[in-house]
């Protein structure tokens, strides 16, 4: 039990996919314009991670090592397509905001990375919690980045204006602002890590 909790929590802080492993930065840069996009992208990626981790750990003994990558990709792509169809049917607005980055979860390094590094070597429950932890870590990172960007870039959080008369810093709504925010946050977290050790 303690083991499972550890698999879950490592994805959030110690091995955070965005700030420590620096994986999946492309969608992070692209969709973190507003908090709602961040949550949507995080939820979609978490669902795919969870689904692919579980299925891959279930069939891991059945897949020969030589063709494991194509098998993983097919499984991941299936979950991504399910996510995309559901988004289109139930939340067209969010689907349009996330755009091409939902289908691109297929090539998100976090998903294939966890499949390759963890799910294909571990049992069902450990893989489940690993996928969940990584997904939650990714989502939290996205929320943090997108909250900073949405606040600075448009003066709002979740579409609500916080400070009257605040002049939005448009650069944070642009890709260059995303690079800036992620770079500074990476530096900040490394500083914290160095302080601790």
């Amino acid at each position: 039990m303690k083991d499972l909790v550890k698999e879950f929590t490592k994805g959030i802080i110690k091995e955070n996919p965005t700030f420590v492993l620096a994986l999946g930065l492309c969608p992070t840069l692209a969709v973190s314009v507003s908090v709602i996009n961040g949550i949507g992208m995080g939820a979609a990626a978490t669902f795919v991670l969870l689904g692919s981790s579980v299925i891959i750990s279930l069939v891991r003994n059945f897949i020969p090592g030589k063709i494991r990558i194509p098998c993983f990709i097919v499984i991941i792509a299936t979950f991504v397509t399910i996510t995309e169809l559901c988004l289109k049917a139930y939340s067209p607005v969010l689907n349009r905001a996330l755009g091409i980055y939902v289908p691109l979860i297929v090539v998100n390094c976090i998903v294939l990375g966890r499949a390759e590094a963890f799910a294909c070597k571990n049992n069902l429950w450990r893989s489940f919690f690993d996928g969940l932890g990584m997904g939650v870590g990714f989502t939290l990172a996205l929320i943090l980045i997108s909250a900073i960007r949405e606040f600075l870039g448009s003066g709002q959080i979740l579409g609500r204006t916080l400070i009257k008369g605040f002049e939005p810093v448009f650069v944070f709504g642009m890709p260059s602002g995303a690079l800036l925010v992620i770079g500074l946050l990476l530096g900040f977290f490394n500083l914290l890590k160095n302080r601790r050790s």
Binding site: V59, P64, I67, T78, T81, I82, L85, A89, Y90
Partner: peptide
């Protein structure tokens, strides 16, 4: 054969999801 099995399973699943969500979309 293994790849084919996985692909068939994936295709079946996707067909089902598509049938469910198609009209809604």
């Amino acid at each position: 054969f293994i790849l084919a099995v996985i692909c068939v399973a994936a295709a079946g699943l996707l067909a089902a999801v598509n049938a469910l969500t198609g009209p809604k979309i």
